[in-house]
Write a protein that binds this DNA or RNA. Structure first.
Lengths: 178, 178
DNA sequence: CCTTAAGATGAGTGCCGACTCGACTTCGTA
DNA sequence: TACGAAGTCGAGTCGGCACTCATCTTAAGG
C-alpha cells in the first residue's frame, strides 16, 4: 500500500465512500453492514476495504470528520446555542453519539475528542465571563450534560416542543448558582 | 408447548436463566450471545430457547422484571432520590437503559414502561405539592431528563463526584421556575 | 500510444451467533 | 416401580457479515 498521493479516481471513490458511510451509519447506526455502504456508494465491497482496511477504520474516519465539524461549529455559537445545535443534530447522527459514548465499537480518538472538549471549555469560559452561567459550573459536568442530552434526544426521538422544554430545564440549572 | 404449571426442574432452570441473563446482559449489553447465557447458567443452549423462543423474548422478560422493580423502587423515594437511584443503577444495567431507549433490539413493553411513567408522574406531583420543583415542570421533560442522565451516566462511566455535580445542575433546573 | 503500477472488482472464505431437532433424561403420578 | 409426558441436551443448520485475493481496468508519465 504505497503512500504517494491518490490517483484521481481513488480520491473520488474515497470521498464518495466517506459521505455514503456517514449517511448509512447515521440512519442505521454502526450495525449497518459494510456491504450496504458499498452498494449505496456505487463501488464494490473490495474498494471500501482497500481504503479502510477494517470497519472500525471506516467508522473512525467518519468520527474524525464529524468531530472536526463540531469543533468548527462550536466557534459559531455560544454555549446554549451549541447545546441546542448538538441536540438537534443528534437525531441525524446516531453514530456520532453512539461512538462518542463508545458503545459497541472500540475506537479511540483521544485527540479529536480532546479538541471538542477544549472548544466546549472555551464556550464555558466565555459564558462565565458574560455571566450567563453560574461561575461554579465546571467543564466535566457540562460535558456530561451535553452527552446526556444528546443521548436522550437521540434515543428518545424528542420532538421540537419536548426538546425545548428539556433544554430549558438544563439551561436553568446551569444558570442557577448551587 | 403445553400451558400447565411448570415442572419443578423447569421452574428452577427458568429462574436461573433469567438471573444469569440479567447479569450477562448487564455486563455486556444486548449483544452478548445466548450461548454465553446458557453456559453461565449451566444449562444447554436448547433449554434457553425452550423457555424463551427468541432472544428478544428473553430480553423482554428481563426488561419486564427490571421495570417492575423500578416501579416498586419509585414508591420508596422522592423525585430527586429516584433520579439519583436510577443513575447509580445505570452503570450496572447497561441493558435496561439501552432497551428503554430501544437501541438495537425491538421490544415493545408499552404497559411496563407506562407503569414506570405513572410512577414518575406520581413523584412529580408529590414534589410539586411539596414545592420542591417548579410547578411548570411537566412529566415529558422529567422523563426525558431521567432517560438522558441515565444514558449519560451509563456511557460516560461517571464517578461519584461527577455524578453528584451533574445531578445537582439538573435538580437546580427542575427547581427554578422558567 | 504504450506501459505499468495503482486501483477496482466481486465471488469466495471463515467465523459467529441465532435457532432447530431427534435422542436422551427426569419429574410426577398411579 | 413403571410409565408417559415434560424437559434437557448439544451437535448441526442457516444466514449474515467482515474480510481476502486473483483477475481485470484505468489513470498518468514518457
Amino acid at each position: 500500500m504505497p503512500e504517494g498521493p491518490l490517483r484521481a479516481d481513488a480520491q473520488r471513490n474515497r470521498a464518495r465512500i466517506l459521505d455514503t458511510a456517514e449517511a448509512v451509519f447515521a440512519e442505521a447506526g454502526p450495525r449497518a453492514s459494510t456491504e450496504e455502504v458499498a452498494r449505496r456508494a456505487g463501488v464494490a465491497i473490495g474498494t471500501v476495504f482497500r481504503h479502510f482496511p477494517t470497519k472500525n477504520d471506516l467508522l473512525a474516519a467518519i468520527m474524525k470528520r464529524l468531530l472536526a465539524r463540531l469543533v468548527e461549529e462550536a466557534g459559531r455559537h455560544d454555549l446554549f446555542a451549541f447545546f441546542t445545535y448538538m441536540v438537534a443534530q443528534a437525531a441525524e447522527k446516531k453514530t456520532v453519539v453512539d461512538l462518542l459514548a463508545g458503545s459497541g465499537v472500540d475506537i479511540r480518538l483521544p485527540e479529536a475528542v480532546g479538541h471538542l472538549s477544549e472548544a466546549v471549555g472555551a464556550l464555558l469560559d466565555q459564558a462565565k465571563n458574560a455571566g450567563t452561567v453560574s461561575d461554579q459550573l465546571e467543564l466535566p459536568e457540562v460535558t456530561a450534560l451535553l452527552v446526556s442530552v444528546c443521548q436522550g434526544a437521540l434515543h428518545g426521538g424528542w420532538d421540537g416542543e419536548l426538546r425545548t422544554r428539556t433544554l430549558n430545564v438544563v439551561f436553568a440549572g446551569m444558570r442557577s448558582r448551587t
